[in-house]
């Protein structure tokens, strides 16, 4: 166990090192330079460009820039080129905005997809199963931005509530109940949209796992000895079908930093996705690279946690 953890951590650190190199190269070898992002701006004289390049080490060779960048990142001194604010603080503020979306989206995903998947596995081939299968494909296939507009039209026409932004503009000093309802309305649509893909995929996965377990011998034994269907399905089958999902808790971690670019720009939600989009447009390399690095770290931690959970949950693979 300990040796597994040790080996895994070493592997992950090596992977992370190469990720940092690859992302740095991708960004710096792409054509165009951040100092030339605004050539029409009259304030950008050649001297300004020169000063800019010097201030951000852009005149150094690539490997020196690489060292500078990651030294700054690890000492927490990286600053955004756009507004000179510390990158980590900026990311943290946006992260707090994206967090409610992520939490509500995750709760929606896990609470909707399990009942749906289990039910369609129990009534396999029936009307419920077929229609939920079709809806799952529909949700996977619908473009997020199109679905967003359908929902916006629907909600605005039916309930007459504003949904764009984090809260209604100028709601400042009304009763707290109205403010809370307002926040909930604004939160509901984008987090549901963020969850649609997850709901569709996860419910299909729950269904196939459940079907697999329902076909096992011990489930037949349980039925044969006369247990009630509820006991067979939920005590014998479901508990074993849940095994792989325990490990998925680790894999939702990268979603923390993801933040959907498209959904957040449609709903004018000042979250991570929007910040990434703005940073890309402004060629704000420190922000792009830091986001990339943090998300790679989260992916690696996520897979690490899921490996560990696998070890804990399933004694068969404890080597």
């Amino acid at each position: 166990m300990l040796s597994f953890i040790g080996r895994s951590i070493v592997h992950k650190i090596i992977t992370l090192f190469f990720v940092s190199i690859v992302s740095f190269l991708i960004i710096h070898l792409a054509p165009g330079e951040p100092s030339q992002v605004d050539p029409l701006n009259p304030k950008f004289t050649p001297e300004m460009v020169e000063r800019f390049r010097e201030a951000f080490h852009l005149d150094e060779p690539l490997h020196v820039q690489y060292l500078y960048f990651y030294r700054d990142l690890f000492t927490g001194k990286t600053i955004s080129w756009k507004d000179n604010l510390p990158v980590l603080k900026k990311i943290w503020e946006r992260f707090l905005n994206s967090l409610p979306l992520f939490i509500v989206g995750t709760i929606l995903t896990w609470t909707i997809s399990f009942p749906v998947g289990i039910r369609s596995a129990l009534f396999r081939g029936g009307f419920y199963d077929r229609s939920s299968t079709f809806f799952a494909y529909l949700l996977i296939s619908i473009p997020g931005f199109f679905f967003a507009y359908i929902l916006i039209i629907f909600v605005v026409n039916q309930f007459q509530v504003p949904v764009i932004g984090m809260e209604t503009f100028g709601i400042g000093d009304t009763a707290w109940s109205i403010r809370v309802m307002d926040r909930i309305w604004h939160l509901l649509l984008p987090s549901f949209l963020g969850a649609t893909g997850g709901i569709a995929v996860l419910s299909r996965y729950v269904r196939s796992q459940m079907l697999e377990v329902e076909g096992q011998d011990y489930v037949r034994t349980a039925k044969a000895k006369g247990l009630s269907p509820d006991q067979v399905h939920y005590k014998h089958a479901l508990r074993n079908a849940l095994l792989p999902f325990v490990t998925m808790f680790g894999l939702i971690l990268p979603g923390l930093i993801g933040g959907s670019v498209i959904i957040e720009s449609i709903f004018a939600w000042p979250g991570m996705g929007r910040m990434a989009y703005e940073a890309i447009l402004a060629r704000d390399y420190p922000v792009i690279l830091t986001l990339n690095f943090v998300s790679a770290v989260l992916v690696l931690i996520g897979t690490f946690i899921s490996d560990l959970l696998y070890l804990v949950v399933d004694p068969r693979i404890r080597l």
Binding site: I26, A30, I257, Y277, I288
Partner: peptide, 24 residues
């Protein structure tokens, strides 16, 4: 397989967006 692991670490839509925005 390590190369595959490295590539899987990138958030894919964000990576695509970055490169597409930087290229013509």
């Amino acid at each position: 397989m390590r190369f595959v692991d490295i590539m899987l670490c990138f958030p894919s839509f964000f990576l695509i967006l970055t490169v597409v925005a930087l290229l013509p």
